[in-house]
């Protein structure tokens, strides 16, 4: 399957079928810091991704100074 990663943007080919949890583990990504989107739909950790799926792994961590009073 085609996997799109962001920040920086790059693409990988990963053999499926594979669960979301296993994919993140294979890519050494913390599930707390990303969303996984297959097509246009969010998918949960136990979802099974097949070889024809295009998957985006979207980081959710925003930077900046953080809030100051």
């Amino acid at each position: 399957m085609r996997v799109l990663l962001r920040n920086p943007r790059r693409e990988l080919d990963v053999d499926g079928p594979i669960t979301v949890a296993a994919l993140l583990q294979r890519l050494d990504l913390n599930p707390e810091s990303v969303l996984v989107i297959a097509g246009d739909e969010l998918v949960a950790r136990d979802a099974r991704l097949d070889d024809t799926t295009t998957v985006e792994i979207r980081p959710v961590i925003s930077g900046g100074e953080g809030p100051r009073p």
């Binding site: 961590i61 930077g63 100074e65």
Partner: peptide, 23 residues
């Protein structure tokens, strides 16, 4: 979705990474 190009590597992001490992 893209990260602010000026924020890369700042301390706040490091703290978030540490906390997400705990989480």
């Amino acid at each position: 979705v893209d990260e602010c190009p000026m924020a890369a590597g700042n301390r706040h992001l490091h703290y978030k990474d540490v906390l997400n490992r705990l989480e």
